[in-house]
Amino acid sequence: MTDIRYLAPRSLEEAVSAFAAAQGAARILAGGTDLLVQMRNGVVKPGLIVDIKKIAEMTEIAETPEGGFRIGAAISGATLAEHPRFGKAWPGVLEAINLIGSKQVQGRASPGGNLCNGSPAGDSVPAMIAAGAVVTVQGPNGRRQMPVEAVPAGPGRTHLAPGEIVVSFTLPPRPAGSGDAYLRMIPRTEMDIAVVGCGVSLTLQGGTVTAARVGLGAVAPTVLLVEDAARALIGSRLEEEALEAAAAACRAACRPINDKRGTIAYRIKVAGVLLKRTAAIAAQRAGGN
């Protein structure tokens, strides 16, 4: 029998110092939709739980002076969906976060938790990577920023230093003619985990792609930023050859495993299919088609 301490600090400093002091025996609680499941399955047995939802900065949605968004890492997908402008600027990111779990889960689950859980199949991560989101991290040595794609280290692991907490995601301003989208392949229609997930963010001017980013999930130990796919799209007018080249780049980036959710061959094939479908939606949203 082990006792579990529960803390719900009001300030980040307090949270970081308790989290760091526990030296790995602590877990951060945001929505808890991964943590509680893992505790119940006996995968983790924390001595301390630090609930970060009472820290204002971690549940805020702020519009940055540059015209972007900064969203607290512990905000729930459902709350984010209620924001009047976020979903208009980043429909792909929003739909990715709100593909996670059921309605009930979406009322709790957060993008910060989804990222820090370290699953290669986390739905919000490829969309955040495609969006070019940057996370603000606070630890015993202060604050730093890192791109989302730099956070995952492998299944269940991150590059966060001991005691560090992801505080917020900053999404850049959206130039005119931009759009993003996220699609995942699941055998069911909902309540499932991505076999492959693909996020695409595009900016088009006069029908030509001027900026592109592609995130790919569940096809490697970490969610991938596929720069070759983006390069294949940039400068194109999303002709079939360009889309096929980007799809091929996605397939080439895959380093998947055979598991209960999908085979290697299946995941590689699907990565290319999803790239094309996601890019089409992003382009439509960008108003370029």
Binding site: P187, R188, T189, E190, M191, D192, I193, K260, R261
Partner: peptide, 24 residues
């Protein structure tokens, strides 16, 4: 039902034992 090489059930839950949901 999916088993691993040791003969252990690998999908002992509704997430990976895929029954249809309403929208299916």
């Amino acid at each position: 039902y999916l088993y691993d090489r040791q003969g252990r059930l690998d999908n002992a839950g509704f997430l990976d034992y895929r029954m249809p949901v309403c929208s299916d």
